[in-house]
Amino acid sequence: MNFLKKISLTSDEKRAALLMAPAIILIFFVAIIPIINIFYLSLFRKVLIFDITKFIGFDNYRHLLVDQRFWNSFLNNVNYSFFSVAIELVLGLTIALILNQSFKARWLIRTAILIPWILPTVIASKFWNIILDPQYGVANKILLNLHIIHTNINWLGDPFWAMKCAILVDVWKYTPFLSLLLLGGLQLIPKELYEAAILDGTNKLQSFKNITLPLLMPTMLVALLFRTMDSFSAFSVVYVLTNGGPADSTELMSLYSFKTLFQSLQFGYGAAISVVIFLCVLLISIVYLYSFSYKTKDVN
């Protein structure tokens, strides 16, 4: 009886459940069921055009292990995520430190900083497409005039440059967002700490290392979490900028999955790649959340 009492809902809980029902039902059918379904789908060979649906167990995953193109997209993704997030963090922190003082034209700066964040990734990527065009692009014209390069560079057509360009677009788009987050974190650090540090005769570098960095760590971890997870399922930048080319040098996992799903119409195999992306994102979030709780315990 006692047990039943425990699980039976109070009147308040019943009312709450009723109020939340529409949202929960929708989330259940449109988010939860598809996530379960994708694991299920990945156990099938499902080719839409031939109307084939056949249970094959873990064969898709076995195939993934030896699929050169998949490993290429995985390594591209690691490369893309590592460099874009690292550059964004360093640049974002620098910008946040520069902005973390009273200054004029706050309105103008805030407006400017929000532009890359708010512009659709598609527009941003198309813009860089125009700028980096080998013949008409402004990038080549400026660099030629400054004598930094001597012939036009085919930025998006050269495997060496294409990935760097994709990272550049990612950095352009997300650094301002990161600097806003970090600026918010910086503004929470009490000014008295720095004043006390001056009295103690510490220099700028020391106070940065001993005050700013540790106190900013929680914010930095959250920002890193968001960005790393996002970049591991990044799609739009490479889809629009290069469509994975040249020679698959910018093909990220999401793009490979998307092409397998909607171009070769292999839904089982495409689902298996999606599952890997999902698990990567999950793993990253667990790692960060773990280190996050560890860090906060440390501070307390």
Binding site: A31, F232, F235, S274
Partner: peptide, 12 residues
């Protein structure tokens, strides 16, 4: 749930 990557729910 809000952190699910879109590609994971796309095909179902």
């Amino acid at each position: 749930i809000s952190m699910f990557p879109s590609i994971a729910t796309l095909s179902p």
